[in-house]
Design a protein around this nucleic acid. Structure first.
Lengths: 247, 247
DNA sequence: CCTGTTTTCGCCTTAGAGTCGATAACTTGC
DNA sequence: GCAAGTTATCGACTCTAAGGCGAAAACAGG
């Protein structure tokens, strides 16, 4: 019973991915160089139009497949939809941006026109893509502190030192290794594998290897302050929500 | 130089508002009853199509104007875009949902088909609108703890007790009045007006009146944990971002 | 076996939220 | 006007968790 036609005006819609990964101790974003107008020669986010039978994230995965091995994407989350009327000189296009995370030990073979850029030193981007990058980085940094998204940014097994490097790169400032260890274990985010790393040059005590206990998103404590009092149950009312990473 | 046509397929797009407000000590959402198919008789979120020259939030404001006085909306923020192919039986429609907040002392005159529903006891909603409500409530509750969004949910002047009622209603559990007072003042979110409230029946000490210092969004501390060490500046790299409430 | 190097862990400090109870500042009733 | 009742405010303590430092542990190499 498809009751009548849809009464809303239609607009071209594109999906864009802010693919972030720690490359050599620097948080970097995947960009490709446009060959054609508009904005020929500028660097842009990977993405493109939405095929009729695909949801936004499915369409995005297809576009990403032309740039990286999609199986290496450990986390994908919608960030924002931009709608400025003149954001594309060809005509009105709505754009939905996603945050995508790739572990640092994944080494996807990139096409010639594609490469990593440190988010701290970005070139001038095509269209309004810098907004998407800024929002995605902001989102990532916020979530690193109250969720276990770190799993998507870290290798499958790692020493505390390595995790420290990855997290520091992502946050943009140094975190102390001793505190990081305690925070992550206290929250039950990481667990030792039992294995030990081989010491580098100069010897030294071999570091224990850890892994993330869960590789799906878990929220540690959504409300840093104003917690519910002792005995009380939290959050009566409002639907229980599977985390909105699926839109 | 509008270089060529837009190469992306187009889809009808609608905007939806999850209008939240504390009504009589209960967090409530504004719904209207559909008269026509599809989902005739079901309760739905206010919203509608996007006119050609309008951005999403402008289009949403126009639709909301038919339900409430838009000037009463103290906060408006984009939450998510849903794209399930069959979310509308009439055909494919993309939908972007917003969170809108209205203070409890605003008493908008509602149309006949529109009314408030406690978020804890929602009726069956049309389409996938329950997803939007759940996500918006989640977003609000999270932000209450690390931003000053409370200003959009509280009256312009209030006693600590009243603020406690509003915040408790929004969070879904009781918060202690004494602690709330210290937390809000320590962060510099609220300030005393100098006035005092008139005591109710039975007397009692008159409560001091407060107001929010700022009525625009301010983030207290985006990262609850893993703060940067003492002297270090935070967040080198990544664009400074005007908060993404504007999309 | 001794030295240098790196990790790990215990202990202390610091910051901010949660709790409790005493005091302040009013009403009403006698 | 005074006592009793009511409500708000504030100080002092507790509790939780993060940040920091240094000692001890665990290895390699000579």
């Amino acid at each position: 019973m498809s009751a009548g036609p849809v009464p809303f005006p239609a607009y071209p819609h594109e999906v864009l991915a802010v693919v972030l990964s720690v490359r050599g101790d620097t948080l970097s974003v995947l960009l490709w160089r446009r060959k054609q107008a508009p904005h020929a020669g500028r660097w842009a986010l990977p993405g493109g139009g939405v095929e009729p039978k695909l949801r936004l994230r499915e369409a995005l995965s297809k576009h990403l497949a032309t740039k990286v091995d999609v199986r290496e994407i450990a986390w994908l989350e919608q960030v924002a939809t931009h709608s400025r009327v003149d954001r594309d000189p060809r005509g009105r296009v709505l754009a939905t941006g996603y945050l995508a995370l790739i572990p640092p030990d994944a080494e996807p073979a990139l096409p010639d026109d594609t490469s990593w850029f440190p988010v701290a030193q970005l070139p001038r981007l095509a269209f309004d893509h810098h907004y998407f990058v800024a929002a995605a980085v902001e989102r990532l940094r916020a979530k690193l502190s109250y969720t276990n998204v770190g799993f998507a940014l870290a290798p499958s097994e790692f020493t505390i030192q390595r995790l420290r490097e990855v997290v520091s790169a992502a946050l943009g400032y140094d975190v102390g290794p001793t505190n990081l260890h305690r925070v992550m274990t206290r929250r039950g985010m990481i667990e030792p594998t039992g294995e030990r790393s081989v010491p580098g040059q100069g010897g030294g005590r071999p570091a224990a290897l850890y892994r993330f206990r869960e590789r799906t998103l878990e929220v540690t404590d959504p409300f840093a302050v104003l917690r519910p009092p002792k005995g009380e149950q939290r959050r009566q009312g409002g639907d229980k929500l599977t985390h909105p990473g699926h839109v």
